[in-house]
Design a protein around this nucleic acid. Sequence first.
RNA 1: GCGGCGGUCGUCUAGCCUGGUCUAGGACGCCGGCCCCCCAAGCCGGCGAUCCCGGGUUCAAAUCCCGGCCGCCGCACCA
Length: 586
Amino acid sequence: MGLNVEGSDKDKYEILMELAKRRGFFWPSFEIYGGVSGFYDLGPLGTLLKENIRKLWLEYFVVKHADLVVPVETPMITPEIVFKASGHLESFTDPIVQCLRCGRVFRADKLIEEATGMNVEGLKPGELTQIIKERGIKCPVCGGELSEVRLFNLLFQTYIGPYKRDIGYLRPEAAQGMFTSFKRVFTVARTSLPLGIAQIGRVARNEISPRQGMIRLREFTIMEMEFFYDPEDPGLPPFGKFGGKLNILTAEQRLKGDEKPATYGVEEAVREGIVKNPWLAYWMAVAKEFVKELGVGEAETFFEEKLPEERAHYATQTFDQLVRVSRWGWVEVSGHAYRGNYDLSQHIKYSGQDLTVFKGFEKARVVKTLQVKVNKSVIGRLFKHDAPKVIEELGNVDPAEVKRALDNGAKFLELGPFKVPTEAIRIEEIEKKITGRRFVPHVVEPSFGAERLVYVSLDKSLVREGDRVYLRLPPKIAPVKVAVFPLLSREPFRERAYRLYSSITASGIMAFFDDSGSIGRRYARADEIGIPYAITVDHQTLEDGTVTVRNRDTREQIRLEEVQVIGWLRKNLEVNLVDLKMGEVK
RNA sequence: GCGGCGGUCGUCUAGCCUGGUCUAGGACGCCGGCCCCCCAAGCCGGCGAUCCCGGGUUCAAAUCCCGGCCGCCGCACCA
């Protein structure tokens, strides 16, 4: 026994980590140099597993919603202006102080708020330092002197090109790429809302002190969608496609100390105002189904509403999707944020570009409005070189007010320093045809961490049955789909089995050939990395051309004709084998 | 970032307290061979360890001391 599990109550996590390293799912990066925390390599099996999870995500969020969602890919390195606009430069940072005696680090603003009751939100580090000095605030733990307040920003900084002034950052989320490319994608997608823009890509966050192995990384793959819609006409999500029940723990419950999520129908959650937005709820339902395919049961996941102070600066309602794993308890695998029009509005402001959407009315509306007509020749003669300024000012005044002034017989209109004679102005009622309206779309965002899902799927699938340790990975995401063995390693078994193996890989199905050791050992090796099916070429194969196919989870065998194998696999690899009761760890 | 504990073949571990007998032992794995076998059987042979890194003490360091890195736990932090 290589695993030393017999008779031990060894933590499942440790068995999993050991298996992950030994068989090549993942391990800490840069090990030969001692390692750096927050970074993990994916090994051969981990790479395949993650690829399958990516594909599954794409299937759920893009392919199954091809009429609503399109994919993009945008750079990791992002110029500074983007994060100025998005607020990350300012808000992705915490003011911290360190105790000069015991070394403990504290959030400076929180410390002052606790000590003095002052609201110091938004103050600069210097101002916070000042307050700490003036109020004589000391380390709350040891009473030691505190350092100057400094800002710690979680963005990784770099330079773009040779000029030090061209600062760039590694993106901490993929979202900004969808916002900065929104105008073009929207056009490409033939200018219709609602529209989801999805992206799978790497992001980086300079975490202060990452822990929890694969759960909290400094660089990871995010699978994210920004779903844009018209806030006045959001459209109806296809609840018939993905609906069902959601387990939700509301912020209100949490404030009352209630920790038990309640179950709602998706539409009910919207109707009751639990989830403030139908699309947010819809994508949560899709998320639940997606995560279920990774082997997570309905009872093992719920959505936790974040409290206002827990939310990101851009969000007005956020739910985290939590999944229970063996070592870490409830772990966040996805975030569902209602970002309103915050991001697009910010980019409109900073870029000066028009990122609004035009939506035509079914019938053009005719609206009567008042307009100020200016006799420019009078203004020109009167104000000479100030005339353009005056004309501009006149364009800004409210026509209704001007009309009132004129009706009251006013002789002049006072515009700052300028006195404009009313003869130069008249009010006209004009008819305007309004064919539609412009607005900034609102956004809901479901966002997943791919490596966390890799970890979750392994944690959920690891089964211990006495000495037998294996992965009950759902066939859809299993890195290797089928193992092919000759019962005996000599000819003609070997040759026959290898030929079958070759035809399977040639058909695009990931397979594994093994002829070393006893047949039982080979089954065990295959089970340990979660290969769902094992095919054996035996004596009977030589007589009638049939092979045995063994099911990893039940160890049952059936016989199939060799020529049927690929078709049979195609069909059976699509089946979701995971029966959650069976998946329980003994 | 702080405090506690830890880091030895691919993996798990013995040794460390009480320095030398450790060119570091075992198990499993892996590779080759035998066996020709349907659930980790057995036999033979082989590969495999900068004892986390750096410095110090000592005639002598896996072992003692200091610093660093990494991991776990607690505190803090966490979009």
